[in-house]
Design a protein around this nucleic acid. Sequence first.
DNA 1: CATTTGACATGATAAATATCATATGAAATC
DNA 2: GATTTCATATGATATTTATCATGTCAAATG
Lengths: 197, 197
Amino acid sequence: MNRSEQKAATRTKILDLAAARLRTEGLAGNAVHRLMRDAGLTHGGFYVHFPSKEALDVAALEWAMENVGNTAKHLPGSLSRAERRKLLAARYLARSHRDHPETGCPLSALVSEVPHGGTAFQNAYAACVAQSLLDRQADYGGTPPGEDIALLALAIGGLALARALPDPTTSDAVLQACRDASAILADAFEEQRGEEQ
Amino acid sequence: MNRSEQKAATRTKILDLAAARLRTEGLAGNAVHRLMRDAGLTHGGFYVHFPSKEALDVAALEWAMENVGNTAKHLPGSLSRAERRKLLAARYLARSHRDHPETGCPLSALVSEVPHGGTAFQNAYAACVAQSLLDRQADYGGTPPGEDIALLALAIGGLALARALPDPTTSDAVLQACRDASAILADAFEEQRGEEQ
DNA sequence: CATTTGACATGATAAATATCATATGAAATC
DNA sequence: GATTTCATATGATATTTATCATGTCAAATG
């Protein structure tokens, strides 16, 4: 492994850790000293890879977004729009997703913390939201974007709320209620469109 | 003003500030030194009023919750359930609410940060959610709680998402989309109930 | 009026924070 | 093989953090 490969590997190791911490502990989770120590390095070397803490936050957010499993991209292609939306909601609002923020969608893990980040971080988050909406609309051009916006807000809100509730029964009920509501909405959107024509 | 009144007044001044900061800057916003300085006091006196930082977080959350304006409690009484729900969503997902987190609902301001708080804070948050659901169901007994859970999650998610987006146009679109979806859901819930009978 | 109490201030401690100057040692280059 | 480069380490600085021991002064109490 030559030097640039080595550097890239180290950077990746840092980013993997940082992206996980960002989702489990938020912006405060990525203290430089602790992050580097737990990556098997020392704090001084940090600035070889990132010019500042905020640059790390941005990079970790983008890294997290690129590495979420189960995104809208990995879906069977032969679904009706409503079925596709229901499936997305079911996956997003799943217990397995709730219980593993470290590998999950950063949008829900960070929603209410975004306003406390710097401008660069806010812009990066906004770009992730835009990308997520684009992915959701794939191959169904012409749909009013408000429909997917609302479904995304419900998914993000439902997952974040479920994670905020320590009682498992209540938390499960939140996931269930939001999956149900997503299905109702997905159908209602189609009906609405039918009436308009 | 005697001594206990004076103490209570000071405590209230601290709590007012802390409750506002908690909503605008999150858990990290209430550094003891800065909080006390900005309340016109010095840091040492803090422990006369609160045993610890986390006790403050809990007290500030409860204080914030008690002092939100425009809650479900302040609504005209003669509304159908669906109309009531639409009105609640319209108020919650309003630009004025988005633009003033310092006086707004702490549930949306803190959703994604709750898991980073201590156990006491998480429990306090859960109690606030439960209370909020109770308020929403007032006088319409017998409704499946899932309906209000979903509407609350959509409201929280929509408002938090709108606050996370720096572009005003996009942010407005999120609020609009979530208000619309809330209205559709509120009507769909009634229809659904009609069919069941 | 003397004494006590208690709300708040002063100042200290210990830990954690971001950042950077400099050192080191191994890989890359000549 | 000598020299340069650069990824990482060491160690330092300045700031911020929560917490507490102790001091002070005004109000309450006898």
